[in-house]
Structure formats: C-alpha cells, structure tokens
C-alpha cells in the first residue's frame, strides 16, 4: 500500500501535528504504464511473420534420369505478365489446348479444383513462371495448391517453346 498508516492508535495525541499525508496520486503513472504496455504489445505481436517451406527439384543433367511423368496427369501453369495464368495439359498426341485465366475465384482456383476432382492424388502441377511475372504470383499459386491439398508440384524454368505458346495465345486474344 502506498499510504503509510500514520495514525498511532489512541494514545499520544500530541503527535498529531507531525501527520503528513503520504498519498501519491498514481493516476498519471498508471496511464503512462498502460499506454506503454499497449504500444509494446501491439509492436511485438504484429510484426510476427509466417513462413512456409518450399522445395525445388535438383537439376538433372542426364535427361534419361528425369522421372517419367504421365503427361495426361500433369497440368502446366505458366505465370505471365500482369497477373495472368496460362495453363495447358499435354494430350496423348503431343498437342496442347492452351487456356488463359487469372487469379480470381473463378479462374485458376476453379481449374485446379476441377483437375483435382478428376485426377485425385495423381495430379501433378508444373509451375513455370515467366521472367516478367511477379514473385507474388508464385506465392499465390503455391498457396492455392496448399489450400487445395495438392502436394505434387514442381517449379521448372520456362522453355522457349512455352514462351512461343504464350505469345501465340496473346496474339490470338488481341484479334
């Protein structure tokens, strides 16, 4: 207690004159203390960041050691400029049907969901970001795969052939 009990019972009434109030008004101090607490609480908890683990396949020098992938089970996503996503599935005869979509709910999310329903755990996702795409696009795609529970994914460098396909698609969209 901050107040010291200076009353000394009944006897010795002459000492009364010495009584000095020792009460301190602590309101400003408490105000300040709580202000600082609030500041430190917010400053410490709000800067916490999350992480997720990410793996890349080692480069394979010898093409014959490349693990065989059943083409019809693999969907290739090309991340392009201006938050665009291109995707295709290789057909048996080597031809592809090329699609353009985006990051909206009806876009790549729906595509991946449909593929997952159709193929289940056999689905492989190959991610090929173009040089012009943003880092955010990659994180969004990987996050989308995590949300859908698709574990089989690979980050692969873009090939000149893919760039040609994207350019052809862009040209056909303009016409």
């Amino acid at each position: 207690m901050a107040e010291i009990n200076t009353s000394e019972g009944g006897k010795g009434g002459k000492k009364r004159s010495k009584k000095v109030s020792t009460k301190v008004d602590m309101t400003p101090m408490v105000d300040l203390a709580f202000l600082l607490i609030t500041f430190f609480m917010l400053a410490t908890t709000l800067t916490k960041q999350q992480k997720f683990d990410f793996g890349v396949p080692p480069d394979v020098k010898d093409p014959s050691q490349q693990p065989e992938l059943k083409a019809s089970n693999a969907i290739t996503l090309i991340l392009g400029k201006d938050d665009k996503v291109y995707w295709y599935v290789m057909n048996q005869d080597g031809s592809t049907d090329f699609h353009t979509t985006d990051f909206s709910e009806e876009g790549i999310h729906k595509t991946l969901l449909d593929k997952k329903k159709a193929l289940g755990n056999n689905l492989n996702v190959v991610i090929k970001p173009m040089k012009e795409s943003k880092y955010k696009n990659l994180v969004d795609i990987v996050d989308e795969l995590a949300i859908l529970g698709i574990g089989k994914q690979a980050l692969v460098d873009i090939t000149p052939n893919d760039i040609k396909l994207v350019q052809a698609e862009n040209a056909s969209l303009k016409n």
Partner: peptide, 26 residues
Amino acid sequence: NSNYEKFGEVVAALKSRRIYKFSLVT
C-alpha cells in the same frame, strides 16, 4: 512486386550450393 526473375536467380544460386529446401516468408 519484385520480379520473378530475381527469385529465379536466388533459387539458381541456392541450387548451385545444393540447397533444395528453404522457407518463404509470408
């Protein structure tokens, strides 16, 4: 909004040091 190109360079450097697993901060 950083370009993927830079991320690609970083991943290539990691790969060349045989580091295939890392974390992305989000």
